[in-house]
Computed example of a mutant assay.
Amino acid sequence: MVVIAQADTNFTEVASLVLAADPAVATALSSATSGLTVFAPTKAAFRELYKTTPKATLLAPANRALLYRIA
Score class of each variant (00 low, 15 high):
L58H: 01
R64W: 06
V18D: 02
P61H: 07
L66Q: 11
L66V: 07
V38T: 02
L29D: 15
F39G: 13
T27L: 14
F11G: 04
S34K: 14
A32N: 06
V38F: 03
S31Y: 08
A45R: 07
I4R: 02
A44Q: 11
F39D: 07
A26H: 06
P61A: 05
A32Y: 06
P23D: 07
T33M: 13
A40I: 08
A26F: 02
V2E: 12
D8V: 02
Y68H: 14
A65R: 05
D22Q: 06
D22T: 01
R69P: 01
F46V: 03
A60Q: 05
D22G: 05
M1T: 10
A20R: 09
L17Y: 09
A71N: 02
D8S: 08
A28I: 01
K43D: 14
T27E: 10
S34E: 14
S31N: 12
A7K: 13
P23T: 11
L59P: 05
A15R: 03
T12G: 07
V18F: 05
D8I: 13
F39P: 03
I4Y: 14
K51H: 10
T9V: 12
T27F: 03
V2W: 09
A20G: 07
A60I: 06
F39H: 13
G35R: 01
A26V: 05
N63G: 00
A21T: 11
A56K: 08
T57Y: 04
L29R: 04
V3H: 12
A5V: 07
V2C: 12
A20I: 00
A56F: 01
A40Y: 13
A65W: 08
V18C: 01
F11M: 11
L59F: 12
T9H: 14
K43H: 06
T57A: 10
A45Y: 08
V25Y: 03
R47W: 08
A21P: 01
A7P: 09
V14L: 03
M1Y: 02
A21G: 04
K55D: 01
Q6M: 13
K51M: 08
L66K: 14
S34V: 10
R69K: 14
V14K: 05
A5D: 05
A24F: 01
A56D: 15
A24M: 10
A26R: 00
Y68C: 09
S16H: 09
V3Q: 12
L36V: 02
A62R: 07
A24K: 15
L59Y: 04
T12C: 09
V25A: 08
P54F: 01
T9P: 13
A40H: 05
A5G: 14
R47N: 03
